[in-house]
Amino acid sequence: MSYELPLPLYKKLTVTFRVEPGCLGPDGIEHIEAFCKFAKQEVANLDSDFVRWVITPRFDKSLLETEYKTNNKRLDHDKAQKYLRVFGKNLDEFEEHLQDKLAELIDQFLGR
């Protein structure tokens, strides 16, 4: 399969990552909205040919930390893995890279 990049928005993998306010420290609830906006801008260009990023606070613990969708349909782990494989990516490495990037961004945001 070959795809013309960048993909149209509806074909991109929408990666929703929900950030716990507590990861910003004891007063994280006061900063979580600003952090999510900052993080969204910082990751916007990562794999942007085929990924659309949504970084949002995780106020509801019943929601998954990371969620994948394409064409408004939720993808389970296996389907997300297959989607990323088309672009030469491994889902576990992809998630690990995102986690590492967000940890860096938290430090940057908090001025560490």
Rank of each mutant, 00 (worst) to 15 (best):
P6D: 05
D60R: 07
E20D: 15
E104A: 10
G25L: 06
F50D: 04
G111D: 03
V19N: 05
D60L: 11
F50L: 03
L105S: 01
L7A: 01
L105Q: 05
K40C: 10
R18F: 07
R58Y: 04
G25R: 03
K37A: 15
L102G: 03
R74W: 08
R74P: 05
Y3F: 15
W53P: 00
L5R: 08
E95T: 07
K69I: 08
V19I: 07
E104H: 00
R52F: 04
V51C: 05
H77N: 10
I29Y: 14
L75K: 06
E30G: 11
Q108C: 11
P8T: 07
K101C: 10
K11E: 02
E93Y: 02
G22H: 00
D92T: 14
E65W: 00
A80N: 06
Q99V: 14
K11R: 12
N45R: 13
D76C: 12
Q99E: 14
I55M: 07
A39H: 01
G88D: 00
D27H: 08
K89L: 08
A103W: 09
D100N: 14
F38A: 06
R52Q: 14
L98D: 03
Y68R: 05
V86T: 09
K101M: 07
E95N: 11
F59I: 15
L102V: 02
R112P: 01
N72Y: 00
F38D: 04
K61W: 06
E4R: 11
K40F: 09
I55C: 01
L5Q: 04
L84S: 02
R112S: 10
Q99D: 15
L110G: 00
N45T: 09
D49K: 07
L91F: 09
H77M: 13
S2M: 10
P21C: 02
E93I: 14
K37F: 09
T66Q: 13
T70C: 08
P6E: 05
L7D: 02
D76P: 04
V15Q: 03
R74V: 15
D92N: 14
L24G: 03
K79F: 13
T16G: 06
D47A: 13
Y68M: 10
G111Q: 03
Q81S: 15
Y10H: 09
L46A: 09
D100L: 15
F87V: 06
D92E: 15
Q81H: 05
A103M: 09
F35P: 04
V15S: 02
P8S: 09
N90D: 10
K89C: 05
R74D: 11
R112M: 10
N90A: 14
V54F: 08
A34G: 02
R52E: 04
S62F: 09
S62D: 04
L98Q: 01
S2Y: 12
A39T: 06
R112E: 10
F87Q: 03
E30A: 14
V51D: 00
I29P: 05
K69W: 02
G111Y: 02
L5Y: 03
V43Y: 04
I32M: 02
K61A: 12
K40W: 05
E65H: 15
K69D: 01
D78N: 12
S2Q: 12
F35H: 08
I106E: 08
R85P: 00
D107E: 14
E20C: 14
K79V: 08
